[in-house]
Design a protein around this nucleic acid. Structure first.
Length: 291
DNA sequence: AATCTTATCAACCGCAAATGG
DNA sequence: CCCATTTGCGGTTGATAAGAT
């Protein structure tokens, strides 16, 4: 959700959640006479973060690292409490966050791990690099909780949905593979006129080791590093008020990579869907608790 | 076009565990 | 060991966008 209110125009000193607008401008350190002594009561700013606050927090973490959130307010000049700063960093500012929609692969991991661990969102999030517990929690609630009458129904329906989706993808891939094989065959016939037999055999042997999808994924792997760097740059440019930031990449290189890897698995078909998805997202994290 | 409903997601709260003096 | 403070987690809320009527 982007900033839609100008916080500098909202000067309501009202307790959170009691009055609109939601936006409040707190932050003054209010000194009041309470009881016999003078109690210095800190009143923290609440509501949506501004770009300037983000910039301050980002700069603070860059200089001092994560942690010691309660001192951030003092050191960075923020009028936010430690919890708020930590939350903003973890859920939004962290540069390693993966933006964009949850992929089908990630969805399958969420389903599997939720079935295993229940609402242990932070645990589930550890198996999904770049995703936050808050994000996963929200995703689960909107996609699965309401859709079924009972949790078991929900998981079952989601699984069926995934299966159908995967079957469809597999069918498409088989079709593509067939087309590619035909094209390859045609190409080989053409090459027969240009190369000697030895060259052709070498080429065929090479091709037999990798499917067309693997070749595609390799190229995407090369692109991935570039895209990841671009995304990180995007965040910083956004915080610096760069207007071109609104054209953030909708599909990250990493997502493409995952899709590529997914195809590889489907082509080879060696493991179960969920096991594959889990391995992609960090098998170590997934199995470690059971070792 | 206006109104209502639903979906999405950022951010808050309270609680419990971890940490430090 | 005790107590105060900090950190992290899960549940919940509410603003806004998008879709339906």
């Amino acid at each position: 959700m982007q900033e839609t209110l100008d916080p500098n125009q909202c000067h309501y000193f009202i307790q959170a959640r009691t009055l609109k607008p939601y936006c409040m401008y707190w932050g003054e350190v209010m000194a009041g006479h309470m009881g016999r002594g003078v109690i210095k009561e800190e009143v923290w700013r609440k509501g949506p973060w501004t770009a300037e606050e983000d910039r301050l927090l980002l700069e603070h973490v860059r200089l001092h690292g994560e942690g010691r959130w309660n001192s951030v307010a003092r050191l960075a000049g923020l009028k936010r409490n430690g919890k708020s700063c930590r939350l903003r960093w973890v859920n939004y500012l962290r540069p390693d966050l993966k933006r964009g929609q949850i992929t089908p692969q990630e969805e399958s991991i969420i389903l599997e791990l939720h079935g295993r661990w229940g609402n242990r969102w932070s645990t589930i999030a550890r198996s999904l690099p770049g995703r936050t517990d808050n994000e996963i929690k929200n995703y689960w609630r909107t996609h699965f909780k309401k859709k079924a009458k009972s949790p078991s129904d929900s998981a079952e329906k989601a699984r069926n949905r995934l299966l159908r989706k995967q079957q469809f993808q597999q069918q498409q891939q088989q079709q593509q593979q067939l087309q590619h094989q035909q094209a390859q065959h045609h190409q080989q016939q053409q090459m027969h006129f240009n190369f000697d037999m030895k060259s052709i055999m070498a080429l065929l042997e090479d091709n037999s080791h990798r499917t067309p999808y693997i070749s595609q994924s390799r190229q995407e792997m090369v692109n991935m590093h570039q895209n990841t760097t671009e995304e990180q740059g995007y965040l910083y440019s956004m915080l610096n008020g760069n207007s071109s930031a609104s054209s953030a990449p909708e599909t990250s290189g990493e997502e493409i990579l995952w899709d590529g890897l997914w195809n590889i698995d489907d082509v080879h078909g060696n493991f179960s869907t969920v096991a594959n998805a889990a391995s992609k997202a960090g098998l170590y994290n997934l199995v470690a608790p059971f070792c």
